[in-house]
Design a protein around this nucleic acid. Structure first.
Lengths: 151, 151
DNA sequence: TATTGTTATACTCTATAACTATA
DNA sequence: TATAGTTATAGAGTATAACAATA
């Protein structure tokens, strides 16, 4: 797909503009990731929350719900699946007894690491086939996307 | 939303590799898009299928299910919501009577156009605040992502 | 037999509303 | 009153399995 990045990005010819191009591209990639999954007993969202806990350490329900941009009640169910399956656990916060800190168990860490490596396998393979310059473009774009998503 | 304040937006330094950076970034952007939605009676998937029909013309159920990377039975329910709401319609294929062609109605076209512009509004605003060079980086990255997603 | 599409059923994810406990 | 978390309930999205109609 050889496209001049400046004047004729993928979506520019179909009248969607750069915003439309980004949105449809992200949607397509996301579905591609999802179709590559084929995991065990846990769903997409639960595994992702487990990954956050493993990477960023113990967090409260409110923190997790904001990170995932979902309602607290939604996140409560996701972490319930994790705790019921033995991959995460609750710890009351001593300083504020309304709060609960969620953290990974040993099994949870193992599952997070395993899931991550398997999920990233095909994507890393595809990225390795790109030139170093193209990889740098993608890394830079990801940084820009992060700042947009968090704005 | 100050979730990942500890890890820089680059993501390259968090030990996940570029593949992990891409996957988490896409996931975050996708959820951001979804949280921006707040549409009417139709959900995310149904609106996206409607957009495909409006953009690419009549398609069979099998074609749609492959485009969305979902099972035919799943797509059948999505198009059912569209037809029930009057935004799409079925047309038997004369040359192969097993097939059904799905296409947009007048109301469907209107909804697709309206949904698209509203959904892209905030994203286009964010992109416009970037430099032309950064916009070019994003456009180039989208082209690369497309080829990866379709591989 | 193979393909196309549908219905039946179950699970995940998400939302809103109502509730309890603590600050 | 405000915040943190939970439970109840409903709807969208997805999957597998079983089925009918057609090629």
């Amino acid at each position: 797909m050889q496209v001049d990045a400046r004047s004729a990005p993928t979506g520019a010819a179909d009248g969607l503009g750069l915003g439309g191009t980004v949105r449809t591209t992200v949607g397509r990639l996301y579905r591609r990731f999802r179709s590559e999954r084929a995991d065990g007993d846990l769903g997409d969202t639960a595994l992702e929350v487990l990954g956050w806990l493993e990477k960023n350490g113990p967090q409260s329900l409110t923190e997790l719900s904001r990170a995932g941009r979902v309602a607290p009640a939604s996140m409560s169910q996701s972490v319930n699946r994790l705790t019921s399956a033995g991959y995460a656990m609750r710890t009351p916060d001593p300083s504020d007894r309304r709060k609960v800190l969620f953290s990974t168990t040993t099994a949870g860490v193992a599952l997070a690491v395993q899931t991550r490596s398997r999920r990233d396998a095909w994507l890393n393979a595809a990225l390795c086939r790109l030139s170093l310059e193209d990889q740098a473009v993608i890394a830079r774009a990801c940084a820009l996307f992060r700042s947009i998503a968090d704005s």
